[in-house]
Design a protein around this nucleic acid. Structure first.
Lengths: 254, 254
DNA sequence: TTATGTGAAGTGTTTCACAGCC
DNA sequence: GGCTGTGAAACACTTCACATAA
């Protein structure tokens, strides 16, 4: 999970596990693709493969939503698309503001999958007066002075922060004060928010560091294996458990 | 967690839990900030607050790395920075390639925190011949024909995919074939990779959908509370557990 | 016969609470 | 006295394996 949230103490109304919620969008995407190819039904096995999870997990996940499948047959694609969309709250559409229209903000504004499913960019906001009025992704950038009015006029409850980290907290505070209760934060800072506000974060450098950790471990294991091979002729190092298809191309980074 | 990975069956050489690894970069960032302010030591309580976690978790996390603190005192900031950097593999630096230099690729290339800690953009690669030679973030974009050579000449083991989803899998396959063993995927697709290759994904629309789910739940709860208030005068709805600072501004999205 | 739905077992993660050390 | 380090308890999530239903 490239993300964390700010201590939301699991209100869990009617108990869909958080881990399941995080996978529903994945299932939805796979189902949408099937729907576009007019596939009428799909088994847990097939859908799981398409979503990149295992079928037991998928069935368990769906069991939290209800019994939407047919034993011996599978799931009706259209019906599931609808049920998951509804569960995720995508049957209504959510106006979203993006604050901080630099490279990244512009990239997000242009991102197609945005408008497609349930979300609508209600406004692009930037603190730089020179940006105000410029068109990005066909939308005029507005100055951040008007932030509060924009939020309330549009009934925005979801905000995306793509500002520099130095101003992220104050932008966050203004968003929250204006009524935003969900924030997607791309700035590399820990945001603090009052209880009842959800924050999710996306952080490139954290993701890279996690990858680096595993890379390093791979290199170490390889070395250990080589040593082991020298020490004990047919010994099995006890450390690797590569799956069925075995070998990794051996690349020693400089 | 904003991410998933492709069924890496937990080789876990000397057992640092994945959840802990995912938090180390957070601690490192907080520590770096303290270090810049020349703060010599920090308690688990303070550091935890700065990183946005609770102190028990932080202490448990650090206990997997070793006993780097001093009872009654706290942690030495510089020492911890070093230990965590080493554990994450950031004492070496990792050449990274970014494939797909659209809006998002360019945003990442320009991202500062990139070069700062352990990572170096070794190349920017794009399939569009018109992009080749253009400078982005001071680096010349190269055509994807040369991908394999770039990877091996630079000893790249980490690749970032910011292409359209339609070509993400084939780009991934080429990266892997050329020797890349860690991939950070921004394209909204499930990538399949051989065993031994790590994939992490960052997916805007998934994050938004998770937020929408919680937003919807909030709205529902509010409605339930209002009903409850009408039905049972002083009743406590049993569903909310707002923390100490109570109320969320009531925003009903259109 | 086939594939879902789900208790029960297994594994991973968080929190608690306090012994141990400075 | 204060704060770390850590067993043990609590909780969350995943996987297993099979009863159940079409």
């Amino acid at each position: 999970m490239a993300t964390g949230r700010t201590h939301r103490p699991a209100t869990r109304s009617r108990g869909i596990p958080e881990a399941t919620v995080a996978r529903l969008p994945l299932y939805l995407r796979a189902l949408t693709a099937l729907s576009e190819r007019s596939v009428p039904t799909v088994s847990s096995e097939e859908l799981a493969a398409a979503a990149g999870v295992n079928s037991a997990k998928l069935r368990k996940d769906f069991s939290y939503l209800g019994s939407y499948g047919t034993r011996g047959v599978g799931y009706d694609v259209e019906y599931l698309v609808y049920q998951i969309s509804r569960e995720l709250g995508l049957t209504q559409d959510w106006p979203v503001v993006i604050v901080g229209i630099g490279n990244l903000g512009a990239a997000l504004a242009n991102y197609g999958g945005f408008a497609s499913r349930g979300f609508r960019v209600a406004a692009l906001i930037d603190a730089d007066p020179a940006m105000a009025g410029k068109q990005v992704a066909g939308i005029a950038v507005q100055h951040s002075d008007g932030l509060e009015k924009i939020i309330s006029d549009n009934g925005v409850s979801i905000g995306v922060i793509t500002t520099p980290p130095s101003v992220a907290q104050q932008v966050c505070d203004r968003l929250v004060a204006a009524g935003v209760t969900s924030i997607l934060n791309f700035a590399p800072t820990v945001l603090s928010v009052p209880d009842g506000v959800d924050v999710r974060k996306v952080d490139l450098s954290i993701e890279l560091q996690i990858l680096a950790f595993h890379e390093q471990r791979k290199a170490g294991e390889e070395a250990a294996l080589n040593e082991a091979a020298l020490a004990a002729p047919a010994g099995r190092g006890d450390s690797t458990d590569q799956g069925p298809d075995g070998d990794v191309p051996a690349v020693m980074p400089a």
